[in-house]
Simulated scan of single mutants.
Amino acid sequence: MEEINWNDFEKVELRIGTILEAFDFPEARKPAIKVKVDFGEFGVKMSSAQITKHYTKEELVGRQIIAVINFPRKQIGKFMSEFLVTGFADENGDIVLSAVDKKVPNGSKLV
């Protein structure tokens, strides 16, 4: 494991956002869901996540997630991803979202 310093960590914009909408993403090579997320002062952004094993579109709406919002945009097929959804792989390799257990203001930074 490579160590980083505090300045390296501070460069990563890990922010909280609330999922406003979730959409099917049938064009994705691996099963995924598109999400539209409100990051407060950082705006509303779109991304996709391979989270179909543990979540339905309906249960995602209103949920707060932790995301990296300062990566460059990434083209995924015809879709442009604007942030990275964070999560952890379970024992089967399926993604479980990173989240908070109490509501915090959208755009808050992980410290």
Rank of each mutant, 00 (worst) to 15 (best):
E58L: 02
Q75K: 15
K74V: 05
A67M: 05
F79Q: 13
V85H: 07
Q75M: 10
L60A: 05
K78A: 11
Q75E: 14
A89N: 15
T56L: 07
T86N: 04
F79T: 09
F88A: 14
K78E: 14
K53F: 12
G77Q: 00
L60W: 03
I76L: 15
Y55Q: 02
L97R: 06
Y55S: 03
V68E: 08
I69A: 04
N92M: 06
I95K: 00
V68T: 13
E91Q: 15
G93N: 11
G93Q: 08
H54R: 07
E91I: 12
A67N: 07
I95P: 13
K78R: 10
L97Y: 09
L84A: 11
S81C: 09
G87E: 10
F83E: 09
E58V: 02
D94C: 06
K57W: 01
L97C: 04
L84I: 12
L97M: 06
G93V: 07
S98E: 10
S98D: 13
V61I: 15
Q75N: 09
V61A: 05
V96G: 01
G87W: 11
I66P: 11
I65V: 14
D90N: 13
V96S: 03
A67E: 04
I69P: 14
A67I: 02
N70W: 11
E91M: 10
D94A: 13
L84V: 12
V85Y: 09
H54G: 03
F79H: 12
I95R: 01
Q75R: 12
V96A: 02
F71H: 11
E82Y: 08
E82D: 12
S98R: 07
D94I: 04
V100L: 13
L97D: 08
T56S: 15
P72M: 00
R63N: 06
I66M: 06
I76S: 06
F83R: 07
G77R: 02
G62V: 04
I95H: 03
V61Q: 11
A67G: 13
G93P: 15
R63A: 00
G62A: 04
F83Y: 12
V61F: 03
I65S: 03
G93E: 10
P72S: 02
F88P: 03
V68I: 15
M80Q: 14
H54F: 05
G87I: 06
A89I: 03
D94N: 15
S81F: 10
Y55D: 05
Y55M: 02
